[in-house]
Amino acid sequence: MKPLLTRLAAILLFAGAGAIQFGHALGASADEIMTRSQRAFHYAGSDAKGRLTMELIDRGGGKRVRVLTMLRRNQEDGGDQKYFIYFHEPGDVRRLTFMVWKYLAREDDRWIFVPAVDLIRRIAAEDKYASFVGSDFTYEDVSGRDVAEDTHTVVREERLGERDTFVIESLPRAPSAFSMRISWIDSENFLPLKEEFYDAQGELHRVFTADKVEDIAAGEGREARVYPTATKRTMKNVKTGHRTEVSVNAVTYDLGLEDDDFAERRMRRPPSDWIR
């Protein structure tokens, strides 16, 4: 818990009358940056669809591939969301579908549909730190973490590659899968370009990088928008040497998905324009 102690010491040092106010101001702006980052990364558009290719690569270079289509709908910006996932590869899970209704205020609802036995079932969803389909990403990495779950501090501003970034330190308010996270947030489009996750021992555990960012256009005329999107991402477990590389293809935003598109009917029979 060294980082926490360091931080406590810093707060104590600044415990003069004016310094407390300074601390508050900095904290608020860090929250604002993280909120904007979450909107840009996990809430872009009113809805979105993309085809993800995930390569799970072990230390020796052995590779396994998952191909899936993911759809997302924001129930409200920054609020609850619904996700739909359809597996294309590998063969033993082909056509399997997965649905998540994500709530900020309570546990998510998750369902799986196994077409080979025509079975829809709820699955236990308590562990958002569980691996997503065996990858180095957790469920929480995929669907986002509530900004209010951590306290955020702007540590510095620095250049990362070609981009200006805010470097944010986030400490969980309650025990979590990480003890500290350092994020490099693009100061222009607010996408996280890099994240370091530290474990309970304070050691570096996982590193996320956004390896390629593309501007995806949506809508026409006055509705035209551009959503910067991390189309190549990597999560590396530095302790095991295992990493997961994701490329996101055929991204579209603002498709006009309806609430009832995220229902049992679609899990059993996804519309062909979603999955082909």
Binding site: I123, A124, A125, E126, D127, Y129, A130, S131
Partner: peptide
């Protein structure tokens, strides 16, 4: 009743 007791264990 079904519950995830720890990561990857149900």
């Amino acid at each position: 009743y079904q519950k995830q007791l720890w990561p990857e264990f149900t």
